Simulated scan of single mutants.
Amino acid sequence: MYFMRIDERDFAAKPMNCPSHCLMFRADKHSYRELPLRLADFGRLHRYERAGAVHGLTRVRTFCQDDAHIFCTIDQLQGEIENFVSMLNEIYRTLGMQEYRIYLSTRPEKRVGSGEVWDRAEGALQKALTTLSLPFTLNPGDGAFYGPKLDIMFVDALKRPWQLGTLQVDFNLPELFQLKYTGEDNSDHRPVMLHRAVLGSLERFIGVYLEHTAGRLPTWLSPLQVVVLNVTDRVNTYCGEILKRLKEVGCRAEFDDRKEKLNFKIREAQLKQIPYMIIIGDKEMETDQVSVRLRDGRMIQGLSQPQMIRMINSDRLSRQLDPGPEEGRNVASNLASMSSGSSTVS
């Protein structure tokens, strides 16, 4: 253990997850039939940031990361890169993150490993991107000390770039840790190691995503999805029945039964960016219907309870970006940045 004293506090250095995953791989014998072997770790990580650099959720001293390492054969390398890009594309599309750019970062001045190993790793990444017809920008000298990497730069609604996802090809750590697997020829072979993250630091991602959406989270991500608002206390029992039906189908819902004016409660719900407001008055109770106000101000009146439930469930289950009655409305299309913006290196 390495100890140090910072800001009048005692600290001990904690390694990243990479060495521990190498030790886990080395603890057992492996056959080529077991590969690729994928290990994920959401353990807490630490990084000393100077006090003046710490900022909200986007730069913190302790954080969680969707960290994963893939041990594979050289023949599986391109397939694993394709799997990573496909998964990242699906996640970003579902979240409405329509624009991102890919940077291929190559060997830095201070690095481990031979030039031949670096040539092989950089060539594998470039070949995979070219095969997939993915535009990318070359970023010379910005790779990790152990291998080249793909940096995924998400561009938010304010056109600010944020480095979130990454994929790093590593021939060096398997060599340093003497990792091996038994190949089809019954001989020992060295695996390739991939370091992979889609969202990066979860705290940082949450901060970036909240700013990107201005707090207007998709219904399926909203902490509170539906609020039931009463016009008068006479409809409280009917509101309670609606709340029960919403919770039975899995909606995160509440009944705001405070003795406040309706406009006041609507205003509060809109400030909280709650996707759906179910407004119940005497007319709705008498006709066994509901009026729905969306957070963008649109009104949908005269819905039966089953129609209202179907609309909200369709939104949640199809993971729409915006609330509303049209099934699949505003579901993000394929990322536009994959076909425009960045220059292609051949």
Rank of each mutant, 00 (worst) to 15 (best):
M1H: 09
R5T: 10
I6P: 07
I6V: 14
D7T: 07
E8D: 15
R9Y: 06
A12E: 10
M16D: 06
N17E: 06
C22M: 03
M24S: 13
F25D: 08
A27Y: 14
D28W: 09
E34C: 05
L37I: 14
G43E: 14
R50T: 14
A51T: 13
A51W: 08
G52I: 01
T58H: 03
R59T: 09
R59H: 05
C64E: 15
D66P: 12
D66Y: 13
D66R: 14
D67G: 07
A68I: 11
A68S: 15
H69N: 13
H69K: 12
N89Y: 12
I102V: 15
S105D: 05
R107G: 02
P108T: 11
P108G: 08
K110I: 10
S114W: 00
S114A: 13
V117G: 01
W118V: 04
R120Y: 05
A121P: 03
E122H: 09
G123M: 05
L125N: 00
K127L: 02
S133R: 13
S133N: 15
L134P: 07
L138N: 13
N139F: 12
P140M: 13
G141T: 09
G143A: 12
M153P: 01
F154V: 15
F154E: 07
D156Y: 10
A157G: 03
R160D: 10
G165Q: 03
D170L: 03
D170A: 03
L173D: 03
N186R: 12
R190L: 07
R196P: 02
A197Q: 02
L210F: 02
E211D: 10
H212M: 01
T213M: 08
G215S: 06
T219R: 00
S222Y: 00
V226R: 01
V227A: 06
N230C: 06
V231Q: 07
R234D: 11
V235K: 02
N236T: 09
T237L: 12
T237I: 14
V249G: 04
G250C: 08
G250N: 07
F255D: 06
D257Q: 11
D257P: 02
K259N: 13
L262H: 02
L262S: 03
K265R: 15
R267F: 08
K272S: 15
Q273V: 07
Q273D: 04
Q273F: 10
Q273E: 10
I279N: 01
I279V: 14
E284D: 04
E286W: 07
T287H: 06
D288Q: 13
S291Y: 05
V292N: 05
L294V: 10
D296S: 02
M299R: 07
Q307A: 11
Q307I: 02
I309M: 02
I309F: 13
N313M: 11
Q320E: 14
P323D: 06
G324I: 02
E326F: 00
G328Q: 09
A332P: 07
G341T: 07
S343N: 08
